[in-house]
């Protein structure tokens, strides 16, 4: 009878839970990426090696810089070579010319310092070009916000459907027990004495729905974490159990709220004195 309403609560909370974990994860990934942000400063070709090595002091003097690494063009080529098949010789393919510039790789102490440092690096005359991954992080954060909005909209819609279904199923029980309710009113039962069992029923629907959603979500997420850790190790998936458990806790609260709201609507309309 109330299986449909339990199922709706489960589905809506499952979607909410998925969206929530997705948002948390992409925020987490954005944070991780942000903290690993590097600034690549490419040095002009015409600058001599000696001069280029002396630039280190200038970079270190910028403030907020945690680490400065010099990568010569030979090293750069070697790194590039390693990424390709061993039997292809890049240098040969490029006609014996190394096209890569010397470069410095800087790490900032704080992620939000990166744009400032990058700007100052750009002002150094010997530096031809500055690159840093800020764009990617920004895109990821935009995506996160977007997912959050879409998730909230979907959840509100399905949540309303859940409230409506609970209200309907409570109305059916109220109707089935109208005789008892009539007698209770006649002998002088208070409104809350009459309403309480129905209210409880609504909350039970919410709790059962929420519990099944949490159990399903926990099962799938732990499987997902297992798989990601084993196969996509570079992806920093969220494993902070206290944070995930607080998501589950909120899902339970929202489930109880859905049930209580659904029955409250029916009881207000159909159980007047």
């Amino acid at each position: 009878m109330c299986f449909a309403s339990i199922a709706t609560v489960t589905v809506s909370l499952l979607i909410l839970g998925c969206a929530w974990l997705l948002v948390l994860n992409s925020q987490h990934i954005a944070n991780v990426m942000e903290s690993e942000l590097e600034i690549n400063a490419y040095i002009r070709k015409e600058v001599e090696r000696e001069e280029a090595l002396n630039l280190r002091r200038k970079f270190e003097a910028l403030g907020g810089v945690a680490e400065v690494t010099f990568i010569s063009n030979e090293e750069g080529l070697k790194n590039l070579q390693e990424r390709f098949e061993e039997d292809t010789n890049i240098l040969e393919a490029l006609g014996g010319n190394n096209p890569l510039p010397d470069m410095y790789r800087l790490k900032a102490e704080r992620a939000d310092d990166v744009p400032r440092i990058a700007g100052e690096v750009d002002k150094i005359p010997e530096v031809e070009n500055v690159r840093y991954g800020q764009g990617i992080v920004e895109k990821l954060l935009v995506l996160t916000n977007w997912m959050r909005t879409v998730g909230v909209v979907i959840v509100v819609v399905i949540g309303l459907a859940a409230i409506f279904l609970i209200a309907t199923s409570i109305r059916i029980t109220v109707f089935a027990r109208r005789r008892e309710i009539g007698i209770m009113k006649m002998v002088g039962a208070t409104d809350w004495y009459i309403r309480w069992p129905f209210f409880l029923e609504g909350m039970m629907v919410g709790i059962i729905g929420a519990l099944s959603a949490v159990l399903a979500l926990n099962f799938f997420y732990s499987k997902l974490v297992q798989n990601v850790v084993m196969t996509l190790n570079f992806l920093p998936i969220l494993q902070d159990t206290s944070l995930i458990f607080s998501v589950y806790k909120w899902l339970l609260f929202i489930g109880i709220f859905l049930g209580a709201a659904g029955s409250a609507i029916t009881l207000r309309r159909f159980l007047k004195v």
Partner: peptide
């Protein structure tokens, strides 16, 4: 309204 039940008793 909330006194009605007690009256009916």
């Amino acid at each position: 309204t909330r006194e009605i039940p007690y009256y009916r008793r």
